[in-house]
Design a protein around this nucleic acid. Structure first.
Lengths: 168, 168
DNA sequence: TGCACGGCTGAACGCACATTCAGCGGGCTG
DNA sequence: CAGCCCGCTGAATGTGCGTTCAGCCGTGCA
């Protein structure tokens, strides 16, 4: 609870949910925990979102909209990416279109750059997206090797490996 | 349930647990589901392993022992790797030593190969391990781009990116 | 001033799940 | 043959969680 002090309760709940779900997973976090984070009652959560499922859908929509807009790697972006990574690991059936969308975007970016050709650009893009999301899903571990949640640094290390390759 | 028809019930339960936990996560799979997969009662699971926690620890030990031995990417290996990936995503506190061990091994392998030097080999190794595990954690999505669970192919695509880099 | 409405709470309900327990059957040992 | 251990089951228990519900309080509108 650093920011979002002045937000409406609804927005506070959504933010807390994104953070908690990204941290502890969907099956792993009770509504009550999210409510406590947002300093509201559990009843209010369902009052605003209908059910836990409804809350999850609202989080998805928020995260997708956020990811659409934000190209830059900004502060809140990392939390949203962590949420998305967790969602794709834990709820793969639901999030298939989202993953595909990220792959398509990555493929396009690759095509527009001077990346070398490959037999299957779509497969390469899929692997790249999985690698990036994997970094977010395992950020607790990477945080022990880089500064705590120093995504800038991690991202730099990743892209250095990817652009230069392991061997010179 | 393809193999392990002739195993003891205890081994069948363990195998089913590794598969289910890797597939649906720890919080996401009831003991009853594992028992059904192994064609035993839920009571027997706790009879053999004491508790769900005990079962998880047994799975961890089994997976670690398995990963120690198997260098090759064989059939059952993928299921174990998928289990480990899921464990590290969902139970990061418990699995920190395991991740570190994989990083150390990766770092050593890199040092013994002709990989180019980097400012921090340990960080590079950590990122590589995270990337590989990420592929397993997101295998449901990658499976839509490669053959269903065609890890050979995925692994090849990954290492091609890593060795050659994205740009020529 | 009175009234309706929306945000919000705490208690109550029901369910799914982990865990406990009493007991059954079959093979082994005395 | 008798007794016992052990793998195994099904029912019972307790609990955490999602959801429902009756009602409170403050604000804006008549």
């Amino acid at each position: 609870m650093r920011f979002s002090e002045d937000l409406t309760a609804r927005a506070r709940i959504r933010d807390a949910a994104v953070r908690r779900f990204g941290l502890d997973g969907f099956a792993g976090t009770p509504i009550k925990r999210i409510a406590a984070d947002a300093r509201v009652s559990a009843g209010l959560v369902v009052h605003h979102f209908g059910s836990k499922q409804g809350l999850i859908e609202a989080c998805d929509a928020y995260a997708i909209a956020f990811a659409e807009v934000a190209e830059q790697r900004t502060e809140g972006n990392h939390e949203v990416l962590a949420y998305l990574a967790r969602a794709m690991v834990e709820r793969s059936a639901d999030t298939a279109p989202l993953f595909d969308q990220m792959v398509a975007r990555s493929e396009q970016a690759l095509a527009e750059s001077e990346a070398r050709d490959t037999t299957d650009p779509k497969q390469r893009a899929a692997v790249l997206v999985a690698m990036e999301l994997g970094g977010y899903a395992l950020r607790a571990h990477l945080g022990r090797y880089f500064g705590e949640a120093d995504f800038e640094h991690i991202g730099r290390a990743m892209s250095e490996i990817l652009t230069k390759g392991l061997y010179s």
